[in-house]
Design a protein around this nucleic acid. Sequence first.
DNA 1: GTCTATACGGTGATAGAC
DNA 2: GTCTATCACCGTATAGAC
Lengths: 191, 191
Amino acid sequence: MNQTKLEIIENTSALLERQGYNATGLNQIVAESGAPKGSLYYYFPDGKEQIGAETLLWSGERMAERIHTGLSQVEDFGEAVHLLAMSIANAIEASNFQAGGPLTTVALETATSSERLNLVCREAYALMQSAFEKKLVENGFEETLAVHLAGYVLAVFEGSILLSRVQHSGNPLRQAAAHLKAYIKSLEVEE
Amino acid sequence: MNQTKLEIIENTSALLERQGYNATGLNQIVAESGAPKGSLYYYFPDGKEQIGAETLLWSGERMAERIHTGLSQVEDFGEAVHLLAMSIANAIEASNFQAGGPLTTVALETATSSERLNLVCREAYALMQSAFEKKLVENGFEETLAVHLAGYVLAVFEGSILLSRVQHSGNPLRQAAAHLKAYIKSLEVEE
DNA sequence: GTCTATACGGTGATAGAC
DNA sequence: GTCTATCACCGTATAGAC
């Protein structure tokens, strides 16, 4: 990918994370990314919606990677998920609660207002869910259970990250991680 | 509360639920609510932010009520939570995924950009969490566990409602409800 | 590929008549 | 209490020079 284009996407990702889609203007994107002002519509002929779509897909891929590498630190799934949640909680606090993933806010803003952005959000979440699912299968979970459980884990992460950002504290995420770990352990025993 | 003011708040609540805060304009609010156009700043001297704040608090109270009455249908907490989730899943589908609570989107949009709205979101979530917590205490859960567990339940609801809205299917919420019920049952046994 | 200038609609907010 | 008129500003998008 072109260097300028990548720079636009990277900076847009950060803006969407902080402000969401509707609050982020094109002027702000070119200002923050330092990209040539006249080249925006050259790289993204469809305008803002295309910038959003490409940014969200790119972000989803990076998030899935982060989940994958985070989970690979420990073999046991319950422990690995707990560790990952703790590291995210620290990162959210360090960012002054402006981090937490660019997807959630935009996904809600566009769930019914832009089909293009909605579809790309679905794909991004699917990538993240797959990362959890893969680790579950490695841990010996049966395939269909792994899919459902991965969706549940994703929901817990998203919900507790939301509460952490709103309450300006990493604790909701940390407590959710503890409950999630306990639940997964109870499933591992039964197998 | 005044009739006109209430009508503005009710309609704003629906708009925030569908579109979020930044996508909702004052013109749209007066159009949709049928309220006298000139009276907006009479009832809400601080403008849009005040409309948002009062709407979110009002919505939070109503959501907490709904949780309370929903949970009171069944005695057992695990069963009650499951039943509530199922009824929300149906409601979300019936709304074409435009429902799911006005808080989540606005809470994320304003988490770091408006202190006033952030504080009112926190209060709204606290009301909802209290509704879960109260039921847990009634079920014999120890106080501090009840608080933490209520926060976890709230996170699971928020996260899985998000996924349901994005994926245009009530299933993420339904599956999360099943996992949540199983986890709660495992805690009940231990007590 | 990148620039400047600009079109055009919509935004939140205010003033002053009634 | 409610209306209309109007403000200054910002949004996305486009045109045309270079």
